[in-house]
C-alpha cells in the first residue's frame, strides 16, 4: 500500500468572473521513502494540489477528491480534528518564502517547540531538547534558537522551516519550491540538506520545483503539470532522456544547460491558460508545435506509455 494515494483531486476557485479550475483530475501515489518531483510553470497548480492534500485550501476554494489516502487514513473524508493530528506530524510542509512563513512575533525555538507541543511531544524539557537536536540536524546553530525571524538570513530561515517540518519525524515531507527565493549558493545547500534528511530519516519527499537540474539529482519520479492537469509522469531518467509529451519536450529543450553557446534559447510561446481562456480540446494545443485539428477538438486522456503516463494524442517519438 502506498504511503500517499491521491485519486481524482479537483480544486477550483470561484470568483465573480466564474469558476476557475486550478487542479483537475490530479492523481499521485508516493511510496514510503520515495522522492517524487512535481514540475510545471507558475500557475500550473503544483502548490495548490499539495495545499489541498494538506487541507489548507480555504473558501472560496473548493476541494473534492475520490480519495486522499495517507498511511491508511482518507484525508478527503476524515474529520478536521483527525486530519489536524496528521498534518504537521506525519505530513509536513516547507514553503517557498521562509521569511513570510515564520511568525515575526516569535523566536525560532518557539516555532519548533509549538509544533512539538500541538502534537503532544513530551514535556517542556523534552521539547527543548528535541528542538536543539533538530536544529543540529538541519545545520541551524542551536544558540540562535532564541533569534526572531527578522534576524535571520533567507538560508537560515529556510533551515529553521525545515527543522520545524522534521521535528515530529514526518513520514512525508512536501517541499514547495524550497529554494526559489534563496541565493544560488544557498539553494544547493538546502537541496543537499533535504536529500540527506530524506536518507537519514527514511521519509518520503515531494519536491515541487521548476528547476529541472534539481529534479535530475533529487527525485526518482517526476509528475509534469500543465494548467492543472497531469500531462506526463515517468521515472526521472526516462523523462529527462526521452520525454513523451510535447510540453515536457519543450520544457527540457528550453533548459539553458542543454543549449550552452548555441544561440538564443528556445522558448515556449504563449502562457499557461488562466480562468477564462481555457481552450477546447487539448489544453496545450495553442502552444504546441505538433498540434493538428484533432487536438483542438478532442481532449486527450492520460494513458500509459513507455513505463509512464502521458496525456497526448500524438506523443513525441524519441530515438
Amino acid at each position: 500500500m502506498p504511503l500517499l494515494d491521491i485519486a481524482d483531486l479537483n480544486v477550483s476557485f470561484t470568483s465573480r468572473s466564474g469558476v476557475f479550475p486550478a487542479v483537475e483530475g490530479f492523481s499521485l501515489t508516493v511510496e514510503a521513502g520515495e522522492a517524487v518531483g512535481i514540475v510545471g510553470e507558475s500557475g500550473a497548480g503544483k502548490s495548490v494540489a499539495m495545499l489541498a492534500a494538506m487541507g489548507l485550501i480555504e473558501p472560496p476554494g473548493r476541494v473534492s477528491a475520490r480519495q486522499m489516502m495517507f498511511n491508511g487514513v482518507d484525508l478527503a473524508r476524515t474529520e478536521p480534528a483527525t486530519r489536524r493530528r496528521v498534518i504537521g506530524k506525519d505530513i509536513a510542509m516547507v514553503f517557498q518564502e521562509p521569511a513570510s512563513n515564520l511568525d515575526p512575533c516569535y523566536s525560532i525555538g518557539f516555532h519548533i517547540m509549538e509544533t512539538l507541543r500541538v502534537h503532544n511531544f513530551g514535556h517542556r524539557a523534552a521539547r527543548r531538547e528535541r528542538a536543539i537536536e533538530v536544529a543540529r540536524q538541519v545545520g541551524f546553530p542551536p544558540a540562535r534558537l532564541d533569534a526572531f525571524p527578522h534576524q535571520l538570513s533567507g538560508g537560515m530561515a529556510q533551515r529553521a522551516m525545515i527543522a520545524m517540518a522534521i521535528a515530529c519525524r514526518p513520514k512525508l515531507l512536501i517541499a514547495d519550491e524550497p529554494t526559489t527565493v534563496l541565493d544560488v549558493s544557498v539553494q544547493a545547500q538546502i537541496i543537499a540538506l533535504l536529500l540527506a534528511l530524506r536518507r537519514t530519516q527514511g521519509m518520503a519527499l515531494i519536491l515541487i520545483t521548476h528547476d529541472m537540474g534539481v529534479v535530475a539529482e533529487a527525485v526518482e519520479r517526476v509528475v509534469v503539470l500543465y494548467a492543472g492537469e497531469v500531462c506526463e509522469q515517468a521515472d526521472t531518467d526516462r523523462l529527462l532522456r526521452a520525454p513523451c509529451h510535447p510540453y515536457t519536450h519543450a520544457l527540457l529543450a528550453a533548459l539553458p544547460e542543454r543549449n550552452f553557446g548555441t544561440g538564443p534559447l528556445p522558448a515556449i510561446p504563449g502562457a499557461v491558460p488562466g480562468g477564462g481562456d481555457r481552450p477546447e480540446g487539448c489544453l496545450f494545443h495553442p502552444r504546441c508545435v505538433y498540434a493538428v485539428e484533432r487536438c483542438q477538438r478532442e481532449a486527450p486522456a492520460l494513458r500509459p506509455l513507455e513505463g509512464g503516463l502521458v496525456r497526448c494524442h500524438f506523443p513525441v517519438k524519441n530515438g
Partner: peptide
C-alpha cells in the same frame, strides 16, 4: 498572512491560530 497558513500546516489548532498567531500580530 503566510505564517498563519504555515502554522495551520504544522497542525496548530484553530483557537491557537487565532490567539497565539493572528491576535498577537
Amino acid at each position: 498572512q503566510d505564517y498563519v497558513r504555515a502554522a495551520r500546516a504544522r497542525g496548530v489548532p484553530k483557537f491557537q491560530l487565532m490567539t497565539v498567531h493572528a491576535l498577537r500580530n
